[in-house]
Amino acid sequence: MLETIASAQVFVLALLLLMGTIAKIATARGAAEPGALARLGPAVLVGERWRAPAMYCCAAGELLLALGLIFTELPIFRWATIAFFSMATYVLLELRRRRPDVGCGCFGEVSARPIGLRSIGRTIALTGMAVAATWSPASVLSLLIPTPGLSWTLLATGVGGALLLLAALSPELEETIARLRYRAPCEQRPFPPAAGLARLRGTAAWRAHAPLLLSEQPTDIWRELCWRFFSFPGRTPDGEMVDVVFALYLSGRRPPVRVAMVTADGEPVTNLAESIPVSA
């Protein structure tokens, strides 16, 4: 039974790796021309001219792993898949820290939403599934051939369960549903500033920074694509006058919020509570 469930993970992993390959190639082909509105995936961490090659390289790696899982039973592909998704988890964490506005690009342009805990949770789940897949002796191709010990019901349940888990961890579905409702991508949908301000006031980031604000009324509100920015006059605990800027993502039920404090000469102020991890 456990072997069948592990075999289901091989099937799901191969499917996702193939989907990722196709989406990344499509995005990289489109990105060959300058003028992108949104920047996607870890490729933003490299220089402009290396972005498309980086995406092709990632797609090639995924394709190799997918083919390895589909056609062979070699353990090296199973271990390489674990390594790939572990590295992907680290890269997403790093990307979230360094460029919080960038989407993960996991499935190309569909994954434009900023990286959240769900995207990271998905790569962790995939790493777990890759670990489980090492228990399966079968390749995807051998699963498609009827064998005496194989329970199709159990296999289908394993595949379905894994896909449901991944769907629950996929922010892409939320944007797809929004597109079906509004028929326009987030950056083209009108969002009244007042509604955005009300939404911001319900977030944890607002509650954490509200004591620093000198006024609850923003001095400036503007919008860029899917981000709404609110700038407030504020003062740090040291007494330094700063602008506290909140960036609110305009799509999704629990939108990401980013905050920064900037001095009059344009230098960001590091919040001590954020820079020093609490160890006790």
Partner: peptide, 24 residues
């Protein structure tokens, strides 16, 4: 607090989203 200007917006947005703002 500074007076809101387009240049200031760029600096603030860059700080919030971790971009590089080349103000010069």
């Amino acid at each position: 607090m500074t007076y809101p200007t387009p240049d200031r917006r760029r600096v603030l947005a860059a700080a919030a989203l971790g971009r590089n703002a080349h103000t010069s």
